[in-house]
Design a binder for these strands. Sequence first.
RNA 1: GGGGGCGUAGCUCAGUUGGUUAGAGCGCCAGCCUGUCACGCUGGAGGUCGCGGGUUCGAGUCCCGUCGCCCUCGCCA
Length: 593
Amino acid sequence: MLRTHNCGELRRENDGQPVSLAGWVHSYREQGRELVFVDLRDRYGKTQVVFNTDEDSRIDELARKLRREDVIHVEGTVRYRGDGLTNPKLDTGEIEVRVTQLKLLSRSKTPPFEIEGGDLPNEELRLSHRFLDLRRPELQKNIRLRHDLTQAVRAYFNERDFLEIETPMLGRSTPEGARDYLVPSRVHPGSFYALPQSPQIYKQILMVSGFDRYYQIARCFRDEDLRADRQPEFTQIDLEMSFVDRDDVLEMIDGLVSSVMKQVRDIDVPLPLPRYTHAEVMEKYGTDKPDLRFGMPIHDISEIAAESDFSVFKTVIGNGGRIRGLTVKNGAEAYSRRLLDVDLKKFVGEYGARGLAYMKVVGGALESTIAKFFSAEQQQAIIATMEAEDGDLLLFVADSWKVTCAALAALRNRIAKEQNLYDPASFSCLWVVDFPLFTWNPDEDRFDAEHHPFCQPNAEDVEYLNTDPGKVRADSYDLVVNGYEAASGSVRIHDSEIQKAIFDLLRIDSEEAERRFGFLLDALRFGAPPHAGIALGLDRWVMMLAGNDNIREVIAFPKTQRAADLLSGAPSEVDEQQLLDLHIELSEPPAAE
RNA sequence: GGGGGCGUAGCUCAGUUGGUUAGAGCGCCAGCCUGUCACGCUGGAGGUCGCGGGUUCGAGUCCCGUCGCCCUCGCCA
């Protein structure tokens, strides 16, 4: 071993002890020719080491050549620094190591950015020099947190009879859902594997095989556009249970969430986590993943507006639309006319809203350019419906149901942030249940599965399967944390006849269904237990627990928005021979250098 | 595919209505300094203003195109 201690553990009690340390030169301070201080750093902390000619002039000579990020090994003696000479900012600040032997293990080029202190460099540089970026304490902390979370998850499931089972990365492409990452087969010309979007089918088959309780920290791949909270490869905490119903899964995850939050961040989560129906949150918050760290629900004034003289609202209602809005408490003064007419209007426009109407509540009545279209009685009705008081600002979107949802949900999040309506360090966890089983796809003239095609219809709604499929609720559930989808799951179909019926509704004919999912259908015909499961987005959980809003901050080697790895240079062109082996011919030659 | 933002020294940024030799802080290099710890002091080096084209007597600045990064809509069973 090169070291007896790490750089974060020496204390005054170690005074006089001979030690050896190794690490990176974090900073370097020369005091005249014969006294040199170095803060030596490793992932445990920093320790000041001292070189002094009194001890050995050769060491001192070498010490003066040290530069930041050089890797060195020192031997020496721990010494209390002396009264008035300690540094309270360092855990090891009461002591220093007086060096008697110095060895330069590795020289460092001058780093392109500072490891600590100063403004963060742009992300491009951070990603191309990720090995340096990862030395920063923030990322070290995040990666550590990720480890802690993963271990807490494993411990929780291991204690409850779950088996951790791996499933294939090279699988079959199922064109439903997200775009697949494809891997060409060398031995089967013209055929491709797909990287898993999730281990969905395999884990269901594991239930059929009798494994009863499965979990996996599973890497998943989706070739879709990236966002701040989305990477093309990401990690799910995936699990599946047999002989359970919805509530069993929800309770299991309630326990997981509270246990993990307590363990890794000492956060107390009251159980059970509240449950809302999909219909309820869409009506109240306009989204299936509401951030409930604050209130500000959506209110609907369609009925009042229909009776008013305001033709813009009446036309929308005549076309089957809705007039819905938000009440910004004490917001009347907070938003200037310019902000409302330009910024916020443009903002809701991104979600398809053609306009943003606003009113202020002043002296118990409405003040607005459109107030004149509403009678005194209607104004009172609006104030009552919006639960508004003097000084409040009312914001309205008049549009289709869908557009009012999207625009107001986004607006609600934006305003809450701007108005500091919540503590960003707080947590709100909730379940959303009873999602619709299908959504109508007008482009393809058919229904699409809202969750995935293996989701069990709610028993009460089975009668609508043939008459009104849009009405059928699914036995599915999402866990929402701070406005993020943090987990998603469902009770699965374990009857091949029902599964076939669902495929029919999705216009996947039996031949096609057999071709795509035959192995699952076949498995379901050999004695499938009722089963249900869920998958949690590990990266998002770590991100939230790290107090971050960017998933790249909790992934060691993330990709850019264009799915490139700036460190390794992936994706890259390959040799002609590799393409030949894979029977691949490029339709367009790559651009010349 | 659409919308928005950014790109000037190694890093973070400033740079006026288009006008002399493009600046600052940090970092880097050299020297000085025996108790520093954001050390201090003195001096110095360092620029394809992302790239290409255009307008102009003159472009970091204006116009067109293009590349990269970020946010976002669509997309993400």
